[in-house]
Design a protein around this nucleic acid. Structure first.
Lengths: 250, 250
DNA sequence: AAATATTGAATTGTGTACAAATGGATTCTA
DNA sequence: TAGAATCCATTTGTACACAATTCAATATTT
């Protein structure tokens, strides 16, 4: 169940140039997933003590992870006030989708040029898993895989730097959806991912670019840009559940 | 001398969402400038003790700064091996410039749309300072201001997220130039920055995009893609000199 | 002499202790 | 009772100490 070994959302590489060892990486990954899959609502406070207890390490390690997430704009860290799950503003939300259009459309030419049959098959596999998640009503996994698809698509370009940027944008998009959109709308309707694979396979740069631009505008349109109220929940319990859902990380 | 208050390369904002207080910020800024202005050659080791002594803080603070720089890919941090100034590979260099073309060209439309007279005047001021730096042979300041120009241009788009990405790419470009290019070639020849301001002022999106694409390809072409040898230097001394050059930071 | 093993100084990783700051509850005042 | 000031519990910031690891120099073996 839930094997997502092949194409994670995120860098995935053990040596990411940030010097994180295995344990930090697991903690980071758990928090990352908890935020991106919306187990932790935007605005949720993330006290260092609680996290340290939860994962059985000292605050030192936790702080490192929190700073990394802060740099990826998934958590907000304010001086002397600790960390909390980021709440993108409306302006930020617009910036994020605008940036996605520029990057994802801009990289299409190289993606089409380098799209091997194996790469396309990997995309199809992601779409299959996305549909499966939708069919069983797992909208969290569905959103996650939808994001993973976009990242996997751009990764075909071979540009790691751009892929890292997009990974961040896609993660933050999940936060935007969690903050402003109704989850089911955002994830279910836009499973047109099948279509684009064939356009890419046909070598149609123009068509792929048009598809991507329209697709991203569609996704953006589903999020309602109305402010909502922050929520507080049982952090420790949630994190332990997320940790259990991912037994491979040990 | 060297007043660069108006348009720094980097976020500049005190509250950057990362929770850095004043002192960390100063240390970060000093190291950032030392790396981007090529006072510290790519590959230079950055031992925590030395930095802690230099800035009169404990290793704890230093580690935080180093991790931030690592996340911006300006330093490499390897497990149990410490930090060193990043040495972009040839592939990374290509990725960086490719990403810059996509982002900088992609954002042009919004830049032209939002370009106010005040914004254009700020660009002109940067070009003036860049020329002044060139005229007195200060190629470090010249490279710095050249990068600041590109960032300021994209900042006009109003997209902070994209601006942050470009800031990172421009910083890393400095590292690429330091690693593979001869400094004078890279900074002096490409002071065609004047030209683009007028094209923007004319509201010519197409023209500006073409200019930018060609400009970036020109810059990329000046860096010779041949490996070189790492160097070791007197780290502490260099950092103290850089700190003194920037008296406003206290 | 070359290759390998060992030792130790130097450096990084991690936990803990204490200082500083925050925010809420209580008390005081008008 | 409303508002302001104060106090205290909680949480974060920073320094330091010790463990673990690396790297290079020396010693050992063949």
């Amino acid at each position: 169940m839930g094997k997502r070994a092949s194409a994670e959302l995120g860098t995935g590489r053990a040596d990411d140039g940030l010097g994180g060892n295995g344990r930090d990486e697991v903690i980071y990954r758990n928090l990352f997933v908890a935020i991106v899959e919306n187990h932790l609502a935007p605005g949720t406070k993330l006290p260092e003590d609680t996290l340290a207890e939860t994962y059985g390490v000292s605050r030192t390690s936790i702080r490192k992870v929190l700073q990394r997430l802060a740099h990826e704009r998934l958590v907000d860290v304010r001086l002397n006030r600790g960390a909390s799950v980021a709440q993108p503003s409306v302006g930020e939300a617009r910036d994020i989708f605008s940036a996605r259009r520029i990057i994802e459309c801009g990289a299409i030419a190289q993606v089409v040029a380098k799209a091997t049959p194996a790469a396309l098959e990997e995309l199809r596999e992601l779409v299959r898993r996305e549909h499966a998640a939708q069919d069983r009503g797992d909208w969290r996994e569905s959103i996650y895989l939808s994001g993973a698809f976009h990242v996997a698509l751009i990764r075909i370009s071979g540009n790691e730097t751009l892929t890292d940027f997009l990974t961040q944008l896609v993660s933050r998009s999940s936060l935007v959806i969690a903050t402003y959109g109704s989850p089911q709308t955002a994830s279910c309707r836009h499973s047109e991912h099948d279509d684009v694979i064939e356009i890419i396979a046909a070598g149609d740069v123009e068509g792929t670019t048009r598809w991507m631009d329209r697709h991203l505008r569609d996704v953006e349109r589903t999020v309602v840009l109305v402010e909502e109220e922050p929520v507080a929940a049982d952090l420790k319990k949630i994190l332990e559940e997320v940790a259990q859902r991912r037994p491979k990380l040990r």
